[in-house]
Simulated assay, not measured.
Amino acid sequence: MSDSPLRIHQIREQLRQQLDAGVFDKDHKLPSERQLSELFAVSRMTLKDALSALEAEGLIYREGRRGWFVAVPRLIYNPLSRSHFHRMVEEQHRRADTEVLSIQSELASPELMRVMELEPLTPIERLTRRRSIDGRAVLLVENCLVSRYFPDILKEDLTQSLTELYRQRYGYRNSRSRFDVQPAAAPASVAKALHLSPGQMVLKIIRVNYNQAGELIDSEFEYWRHDAVCIRIDSQCRVETEAILK
Score class of each variant (00 low, 15 high):
90 E>I: 08
204 K>V: 15
19 L>T: 04
57 E>K: 01
157 D>Y: 01
206 I>K: 08
196 L>G: 04
221 F>R: 15
148 R>K: 11
164 E>P: 02
123 P>L: 14
209 N>I: 08
161 S>M: 07
215 E>M: 11
117 E>H: 03
40 F>T: 07
95 R>C: 04
70 V>I: 06
55 E>P: 01
150 F>L: 14
231 I>A: 09
183 P>Y: 09
164 E>R: 05
17 Q>K: 12
145 L>I: 09
202 V>E: 01
76 I>C: 10
154 L>C: 15
140 L>I: 02
40 F>S: 08
89 V>T: 03
141 V>H: 11
120 P>L: 08
79 P>Q: 04
3 D>N: 07
192 K>Q: 15
146 V>A: 14
117 E>Y: 02
238 R>N: 10
102 S>E: 00
223 Y>Q: 07
239 V>Q: 13
175 S>Q: 06
33 E>G: 04
129 R>I: 05
119 E>M: 05
119 E>I: 01
8 I>N: 00
161 S>D: 13
243 A>P: 02
199 G>F: 02
229 V>W: 01
211 N>I: 12
194 L>F: 13
228 A>H: 13
139 L>Y: 02
201 M>V: 08
178 R>G: 00
51 L>D: 00
196 L>A: 07
30 L>G: 06
217 I>K: 06
113 M>T: 13
92 Q>L: 00
186 A>M: 00
4 S>T: 15
99 E>Q: 08
50 A>N: 05
165 L>D: 05
227 D>M: 00
172 Y>Q: 05
16 R>M: 13
104 Q>N: 00
106 E>Q: 03
207 R>Q: 10
167 R>M: 10
65 R>D: 05
211 N>F: 13
108 A>Y: 09
12 R>T: 13
156 E>L: 15
154 L>P: 02
4 S>Q: 04
129 R>Y: 07
174 N>S: 01
133 I>T: 12
14 Q>I: 05
